[in-house]
């Protein structure tokens, strides 16, 4: 079950500059864990010490914010896109 993880520019250096990763997983948690496995440092940026998503990181499956669905248990369809959208404040 391959899913696509889309990385914002702040996190792309952790993925060798790539904007998208193809990883295996059936839920958001599995997909992000797999992404962390191939991008050292990514897991620490996304998760706190308790293994929860950091609250300033919004994760979407397709167009839906996982915070309003099942969080890390939100299912990801085969070929689904998981987007990491960080809060930015620049003006």
């Amino acid at each position: 079950m391959t899913a696509v993880v889309r990385l914002p520019s702040q996190l792309r250096p952790l993925a060798g500059g790539r904007a998208e990763l193809e990883v295996e997983g059936r839920t958001v948690g599995e997909v992000l864990a797999a992404a962390g496995g191939v991008c050292p440092g990514l897991t620490e940026r996304l998760f706190d010490d308790a293994g929860q998503l950091r609250r300033f990181v919004n994760v979407f499956v397709a167009e839906e914010d996982v915070r309003f669905h099942s969080g890390l248990d939100t299912p990801v369809a085969p070929g689904g896109v998981v987007s990491i959208v960080p809060a930015v404040a620049g003006g």
Partner: peptide
Amino acid sequence: CFVPEPPPPELAPSCSEAGVLGVLP
């Protein structure tokens, strides 16, 4: 609702620190 907590400053550098392409704004 969208950003319940701000990122720590080291993870959210400002444009004056991180740069921005001028057309973007």
